[in-house]
Design a protein around this nucleic acid. Structure first.
Lengths: 203, 203
DNA sequence: TTTTGACCCTTCAAATGAAAAAGTCAGAAA
DNA sequence: TTTCTGACTTTTTCATTTGAAGGGTCAAAA
């Protein structure tokens, strides 16, 4: 079983390399197999179909994300610093996995299985809850005024995601946003975050 | 000339009726002509092509919008009240002209001429400037802390627009958002606006 | 248990062509 | 002269076809 899991991980790593560069749709099972110098049926021995492999990839990416994000809470004393770090982490992931369109907001044809959709919703909820917990802590500490932490976290994250979404849509219609656009997204998210959190404080 | 302008307006009104219901792409010049009981070449006598008619329509809609919006400034004493009213006005226009996809954020095939794009940019700038002026007034009155009014207005409007954009994308993929979704968009925009403006205040 | 070559079947993108819509024009009506 | 129209041409759009490519299977080998 350990051997099998290791092979699965190797395949997932190989798939990620292709996905990052070409996206999910433009990556074939054959290409992934060739990269790993195995045959296609070998892949199908470890994953029943492409969707399962994609799910495995996405699970891995989100695990990495949440692992990183869970360390932030403890290491950062102030709410502002905490949120700034979180934005930067998300931004790094967004940049790295841009071609996979993981934001879920894309009308992309790739990730449309019900299982994947469910998983995305779960990850989204996780993320909101994580932010809600941080907000709740700040409320308890008297750092910000009492509010519905979950609702507020949802609004906070959506407003940040909305900024990204608009910037991408307005930007030059290349398939990959430029360094400049990426920087702009980050800057505006940080600005909005600062104002938002200030708006949550007791007056 | 007055007669000609009147005829142009009649055509524009006729076009709007169709556009509101079917969108720009699904409305033909023939249909507009038939509605007005004239021939297609008559339309082309007043507008050199469909794009010009669309431009006329959009100019009219934005004129109506800015006319309404310009009255808000004077009638509303507080920044909060002013912004709430503005959100409600935008929301009414958004609902009414939803099928025309005027937000500009749509990868819709309709409004893609360079002239139209330029016009949209101008309208967007107008709108930001209008909000910036209101923010500047509030800064001068000491209602909120000093900031770059224009930049702030841009961030403010984009964060609100981003909320809309996300809600539409996540919603049921019908071509028209439900009453419930529309209400949700409005509520979240108002919540975000309240937090944002609180965040601009002097601490 | 794991791996493979050879194979099948579905999907998708380019090509085609017909229908519909945009746009034109000579001439009639006002 | 200005406004309007029927009949026309050109362009765009859209459903259909079709061939290649990619997802997925299986008997047999390692």
């Amino acid at each position: 079983m350990v051997e099998t899991d290791k092979k699965r991980d190797v395949i997932i790593e190989g798939a990620i390399k292709r996905f990052i560069h070409y996206g999910i749709n433009k990556t074939t099972m054959n290409e992934i197999a060739e990269d790993l110098s195995v045959s296609k049926p070998s892949l199908y021995y470890y994953f029943p179909d492409k969707s399962s492999l994609v799910l495995g990839v996405i699970e891995k990416i989100f695990n990495d994300y949440f692992e990183l994000v869970n360390q932030v809470q403890s290491g950062n004393p102030s709410l502002e610093g905490c949120m700034t770090t979180l934005i930067e982490i998300r931004h790094r992931f967004f940049q790295k996995y841009y071609m996979m369109h993981l934001s879920g907001n894309t009308p992309d044809s790739s990730l449309n299985s019900e299982e994947l959709k469910g998983h995305f919703i779960k990850m989204r909820t996780n993320n909101i809850q994580l932010h809600a917990d941080i907000f709740q802590l700040a409320i308890d500490k008297g750092e910000i005024a009492p509010t519905e932490a979950y609702k507020t976290a949802e609004l906070y994250l959506d407003s940040l995601a909305g900024i990204t979404s608009l910037c991408i849509m307005h930007g030059n219609k290349e398939l990959f946003p430029s360094k400049k656009e990426m920087k702009n997204i980050l800057d505006r998210q940080l600005s909005l975050s600062a104002i938002f959190i200030k708006g949550l404080k007791q007056q």
